[in-house]
Design a protein around this nucleic acid. Structure first.
Length: 721
DNA sequence: CTTAAATACTTTTTT
DNA sequence: AGTATTTAAG
């Protein structure tokens, strides 16, 4: 095997195999390359079969890429290797084993919304006031407890005061409700395998045997259950390799414990420790600035990245009047880097601390016809209309799912109101039935005849699909279902842009189910639902699209871009929160800044606004982020300035940015484009060629237009291929 | 029970 | 400002 292309440390990291290995991998130090080579090395040189390897990554996308790269290195089929996120690996194990814990393997995975809905209904069942027991807060509290592996029993032992006592009660009821619904929340996904291993040592032994080598990426962001999972699997053979960087630990709010990496040797026993400190990504200036800020932190392992890359340009600090001006200045930078500079749209990323910041920037980019893509925010699979359809599919597979039942029993409207639903709930509770089972025998339920009929029909519908879903493929089922509930008419009759948009999203869901089925013939509805609940936005992102990317810094972890713009560098926004910080929280913000800056290869722009409005209120004066003052003065250049002209100029100027004419002449059927007036659209048909081609385009809201390429001034977003 | 109007809430970050 | 939820009228 060829390890020539690795530097000495990287090579050592690949070749050391007996016993625990800890790799401190700084930003851009070639960590993915080390991991893929190490796996290839294990297979090729050590002779370990791929299905005896477990590799945990931070996103599904990273998992796919890792598998592909190993496959390319080895030139053999490695599909039997277990690569995935903690959540997807756990889900896979549980599909096979969960009967041992008293669930059925048709369990559904509840996302945050679902789990909040369940908390809400538990609060209601306990006759507690939603004003004093805010579902969202309670859910956060429960999730935090679960992340620390505090069971309902343990929680009950340490209650103090009324509020705690009731929270404990809700927690315990919530857990019971999950089981009754045959559902797991995200936290359960991590906890249940550990429970399985504790209660059934034979199963643990099986998996210890199966996963003879365990690798974990982004180890600094593992929490207690994840740590225990890895430890359980590898404590016998001790062949475990973790990779991480304490300076990039940014998930402590989710229970991640940086001590997992700092105390690795203590917990796994005498480990080989390797440090990768050569950075291949960024310029010297960028690294110097990133280090200047993060080194202000007290609790960190002392280290400094170095690079052979060139000095590079100074980092730019852009001062803006307000968030609108900031967006305009970002636009100017994009224009400058793409038209006058040598970068493409996909070389640029705009990073921010909170999702809410994307809106203003998006407004300007859309209006000026700059192709962009937003990661995060309102996730596709979290949209109401999509979740409604998914709820049908979930109920078909898992008829005990009460959260999904509540969601669709009156969607589309079929005359079932609040009181009827409450009667179903109480009847279910008294007789220990699932909601759907209640519908089997409506005789002794005191509800109207109209309601009875309607509920009966609903029940028939679900059962019809329950009887056929195993033989049919997922796309057909969904298609038939949509016809049966007549959803298209439901939306089209509302006759609003919004409703049409929603129907489009439902159609897109159907498309993605068809896609899924085409790619994985052996997989059915259940597999699709699982994939959907564990997919992140980053997983759906196509990095090669010719568009500027907008995302939070958290989402950007592990990625790199030639040009990085970080917006909103103001006290209270970044670092986020009150000025009076707990030291640990401030240090995490600082690490976040470190992550943001080290995404950049060539150029960094840092912008801050002098005033900013929050919640659409009045503009509030801001203070420049302390992180800017922590940068070495000789490495930054302050631009933009206060002069009025930049602001008004950018406001009044005709959009100086035009798509080059040639690009709109190459458009083909199926391409996605953006239009100044009509927004995003997809090309349905092309008549003629080149500049004079006539394009039929369907824009959002199902608006169809026929445009001539030459005059349409379209911005290509995605090509169909 | 449904629809329209009033009001409350949003902004941490994500699996 | 924009969206979700709650309340009042039909």
């Amino acid at each position: 095997m060829n390890l020539e292309e690795l530097n000495p440390q990287q090579r050592k990291a690949v070749e050391i195999t007996g016993g625990p290995v800890l790799i401190f991998a700084g930003a851009g130090s070639g960590k993915t390359r080390v991991l893929t080579h190490k796996i290839a090395y294990l297979v090729n040189e050590i002779g370990l079969p791929p299905d005896n390897i477990l590799a945990v990554t931070f996103t599904n996308k990273a998992a796919d890429e890792m598998k592909q790269r190993v496959q390319d290195l080895l030139n053999m089929d490695v599909s039997s290797m277990s690569v995935g996120t903690f959540h997807s690996i756990s889900a896979r194990i549980l599909r096979r084993e969960i009967q041992l814990l008293g669930y059925s393997n048709d369990f559904v995975i509840y996302d945050q919304d679902d789990s909040r809905a369940l908390v809400k209904s538990v609060i209601k069942d306990l006759n507690l006031d939603e004003k004093s027991f805010v579902p969202k807060a309670i859910q956060a509290h429960i999730s935090k407890a679960k992340n620390q592996m505090i069971t309902p029993e343990l929680f009950a032992n340490s209650v103090e005061g009324f509020l705690d006592e009731k929270t404990s009660e809700i927690y315990s009821q919530y857990q019971k409700a999950l089981k009754a619904n045959n559902a797991l929340d995200f936290d359960d996904l991590l906890l249940k395998p550990i429970e399985l291993f504790k209660e059934h040592p034979g199963r643990l032994e099986y998996y210890q045997n199966k996963y003879q080598y365990v690798l974990v990426d982004e180890y600094q962001d593992t929490n207690k259950p994840q740590f225990e999972f890895i430890q359980a699997l590898s404590r016998e053979h001790r062949d475990v390799c973790v990779v991480g960087d304490d300076d990039q630990s940014i998930y402590s709010w989710r229970g991640a414990d940086v001590n997992n990496i700092l105390n690795f040797s203590d917990t796994f026993g005498e480990a080989h420790i390797i440090k990768l400190e050569q950075n291949y990504r960024s310029t010297k200036n960028i690294l110097e600035c990133a280090w200047a800020v993060v080194s202000k932190n007290n609790t960190r392992a002392e280290k400094k990245l170095w690079t052979d890359n060139k000095q590079g340009e100074k980092l730019s600090v852009i001062e803006c009047r307000d968030e609108r001006d900031e967006s305009w200045k970002i636009l100017k930078i994009i224009q400058n880097e793409t038209v006058h500079g040598s970068f493409g749209f996909d070389d640029l990323v705009i990073l921010y601390r909170t999702n809410a910041q994307s809106r203003v920037v998006e407004d300007v980019l859309r209006r000026e016809g700059v192709p962009y893509e937003i990661i995060g925010g309102i996730k596709f699979y979290a949209r109401k209309e999509v979740k409604d359809v998914l709820a049908y599919l979930r109920l078909i597979i898992n008829p005990t799912d009460g959260v999904s039942f509540d969601r669709i029993v009156n969607f589309p409207v079929r005359g079932i109101g609040k009181t009827t639903i409450e009667k179903i709930h109480s009847h279910a509770k008294e007789n220990d039935l699932s909601y759907l089972q209640v519908l089997e025998d409506l005789g002794n339920l005191s509800i109207g005849a109209k309601q009875k009929k309607s509920l009966h029909e609903f029940n028939q519908l679900i059962h019809k699909f329950r009887n056929s879903y195993k033989e049919q493929n997922a796309a057909n089922i969904t298609h038939d279902l949509l016809l049966d509930i007549d959803l298209q008419n439901y939306y089209e009759n509302q006759n609003t842009q919004e409703a049409l948009e929603r129907w489009n999203n439902v159609e897109e869901l159907l498309n993605s189910i068809t896609d899924f089925h085409d790619n994985r013939k052996e997989s059915g509805l259940r597999e699709f639902l699982e994939e959907v609940s564990l997919l992140t936005d980053i997983d759906r992102w196509n990095a090669s699209d010719k568009a500027v990317t907008l995302m939070t810094i958290h989402s950007a972890k592990g990625l790199e871009f030639p040009v990085v713009m970080v917006a909103g560098l103001e006290e209270g926004l970044f670092p986020l929160g009150p000025q009076s910080y707990e030291v640990e929280e401030l240090e995490e913000e600082r690490r976040l800044f470190y992550v943001a800056v080290t995404r950049a290869m060539n150029k960094v722009y840092l912008s801050h606004a002098i005033t900013r409005r929050r919640f659409g209120g009045a503009p509030i004066p801001t203070t420049q982020s302390r992180f800017i003052s922590e940068l070495p003065e000789n490495l930054i250049e302050v631009k933009g300035g206060r002069e009025q002209s930049t602001f008004s100029k950018s406001y009044n100027a005709k959009p100086s940015f035009q798509q080059t004419p040639s690009s709109s002449s190459n458009l083909r059927k199926g391409d996605q484009v953006s239009h100044k007036l009509f927004g995003k659209g997809r090309i349905l048909n092309v008549e003629g060629e080149g500049e004079s081609a006539k394009l039929t385009i369907v824009f959002s809201g199902n608006v169809r237009k026929k445009l001539i390429a030459q005059y349409a001034n379209l911005t290509p977003l995605k090509t169909a291929s």
